[in-house]
Design a binder for these strands. Structure first.
Length: 259
DNA sequence: ATGGTAGACCTTCTA
């Protein structure tokens, strides 16, 4: 079973290119982030015609996440637990009812810039809530995949120029420590299992020729419970998509789990 | 060299 994550940076501005990739790659499950629209404006029919079931947790102008699945989805949860006052649409989860069911959480973790502001505090608080939720889900001891735009550069080798990111929320020691805390719970970062791969990126800024210079960072991740990690066969970054017409600044990342 | 690009949307915010 192949599960993908992709920050599309507006689903409606990007629809043709996104559908092209879905026709080519045909993932079984996909988590989309930054759809930047309310539920009613999501192009549900376009994905249904490709054979997907659709669950959307949208928001006007900013954020917004969606889950697409060729298998039925049950137990759909919208919004990250732990703060009833949080109105930002950044989390959606469902049980994918495949022959061997997998629970998939799609997330768009707050950017957190600039540091020293309430935006950075919100990022860290959101990560603490994600940790608590992951801990609760892991207690089930079932296959679980938490996939999305984590807005965290885990290691210096996950960016082209570490020095350029030292003051950025994505590379702060606190952000990276909170990302490691998720892994200490027992979650395995899929890309790290791909032997010998460093300096692989999932995001290239639109500015300053970042893509032609390969000035990228790796911030889109898939974290797996032991029951999912045991079945991990591959983790693939679809970098070539960044070079297409009207691209997102992120590219799809896809894992393959043994059936 | 403190720029540059992109999307949503009303003028600036977020990334």
């Amino acid at each position: 079973m192949r599960i993908a994550t992709w920050n599309v940076n507006s689903i409606n501005a990007r629809l043709d290119g996104v559908l092209d990739w879905f026709r080519e790659a045909s993932p079984d499950v996909a988590c989309l982030q930054e759809i930047k629209c309310v539920d009613e404006k999501f192009p549900t029919e376009a994905f249904e015609s490709l054979g997907y079931n659709v669950a959307v947790h949208g928001q006007k102008t900013y954020n917004g996440v969606a889950l697409l699945s060729k298998y039925p989805m049950e137990d759909v949860r919208k919004g990250l637990p732990g703060d009833e006052t949080d109105e930002q649409a950044r989390y959606i989860e469902a049980l994918i009812v495949a022959p061997r069911p997998v629970r998939v959480g799609g997330l768009y973790l707050p950017n957190g810039n600039p540091i020293g502001t309430d935006k950075f505090s919100y990022k860290l608080a959101w990560m603490a809530r994600l940790k608590a939720h992951a801990q609760m889900l892991l207690a089930d001891e079932e296959p679980l995949v938490l996939a999305g735009d984590y807005n965290v550069i885990p290691e210096a080798s996950d960016c082209y120029d570490p020095a350029a990111w030292v003051g950025d929320a994505l590379f702060q020691p606190q952000s990276r420590a909170a990302f490691r805390e998720l892994q200490w719970l027992g979650l395995t970062e899929a890309h790290k299992q791909v032997v010998g791969k460093t300096h692989d990126y999932t995001f290239w800024d639109y500015q300053a020729g970042a893509w032609p210079r390969n000035n990228g960072i790796r911030i889109d991740h898939l974290l797996l419970s032991p029951q999912a990690a045991d079945r991990l066969k591959a983790c693939t970054i679809h970098s070539h998509v960044r070079g297409r017409e009207k691209p997102s600044d992120h590219v799809p990342v896809e894992i393959d789990l043994a059936l």
